[in-house]
Measured scan of single mutants.
Amino acid sequence: DNLVIALHSYEPSHDGDLGFEKGEQLRILEQSGEWWKAQSLTTGQEGFIPFNFVAKA
């Protein structure tokens, strides 16, 4: 599955970004460039995340 774990917390800075906490698990929905579309397994919310803040779970 496309699961990743957050290496750092991220505060959203643009509409459509997904904020998350360090250690949170996310499911990657789309990989494109440096911003990936993801869904939080904690909150169920979707949005874009910086790819370098996460690692394969």
Rank of each mutant, 00 (worst) to 15 (best):
D1W: 13
D1F: 12
D1Q: 10
D1Y: 12
N2V: 12
L3G: 02
L3S: 02
L3A: 02
L3P: 02
V4T: 04
V4N: 01
I5K: 03
I5S: 04
I5L: 07
A6F: 04
A6G: 05
A6D: 01
A6W: 02
A6V: 07
A6P: 00
A6N: 02
L7S: 04
L7G: 02
H8M: 14
H8V: 14
S9T: 12
S9Q: 07
Y10I: 04
Y10R: 08
E11R: 14
E11I: 15
E11Q: 14
E11S: 13
P12R: 06
P12Y: 05
P12Q: 07
P12H: 05
P12F: 05
S13V: 15
S13M: 15
H14M: 09
H14E: 08
H14F: 11
D15M: 10
D15T: 11
D15R: 10
D15N: 10
G16E: 07
G16D: 09
D17G: 13
D17K: 09
D17S: 10
L18Q: 01
L18T: 01
L18N: 01
G19Y: 06
G19V: 04
G19L: 05
G19E: 05
F20P: 00
F20K: 00
F20S: 00
F20N: 00
E21G: 08
E21N: 11
E21A: 13
K22D: 03
K22W: 04
G23H: 05
G23I: 01
G23R: 01
E24F: 02
E24C: 04
E24K: 00
Q25F: 15
Q25N: 08
Q25R: 13
Q25E: 10
L26Y: 02
R27A: 06
R27M: 12
I28E: 02
I28C: 05
I28D: 03
I28W: 03
L29N: 02
L29M: 07
L29G: 02
E30G: 07
E30P: 00
E30R: 05
Q31P: 05
S32I: 14
S32Q: 12
G33M: 03
G33D: 05
G33I: 02
G33V: 03
E34G: 09
E34K: 14
E34A: 12
E34R: 13
E34S: 12
E34Q: 13
W35S: 07
W36P: 04
A38E: 00
A38K: 00
A38Y: 03
Q39P: 00
S40D: 02
L41W: 03
T42N: 09
T42I: 13
T42D: 08
T42M: 11
T42S: 13
T42A: 12
T42V: 13
T43Q: 01
T43C: 04
T43V: 00
T43R: 02
G44L: 09
Q45C: 09
Q45V: 09
Q45H: 10
Q45R: 14
E46I: 15
G47K: 00
G47N: 00
F48W: 15
F48R: 10
F48N: 08
F48T: 07
I49D: 03
P50W: 08
P50K: 06
P50S: 04
P50G: 02
F51E: 07
F51Y: 13
F51G: 12
F51Q: 11
N52L: 07
F53Y: 14
V54R: 00
V54D: 02
V54H: 02
V54N: 04
V54P: 02
K56D: 11
A57G: 11
A57K: 10
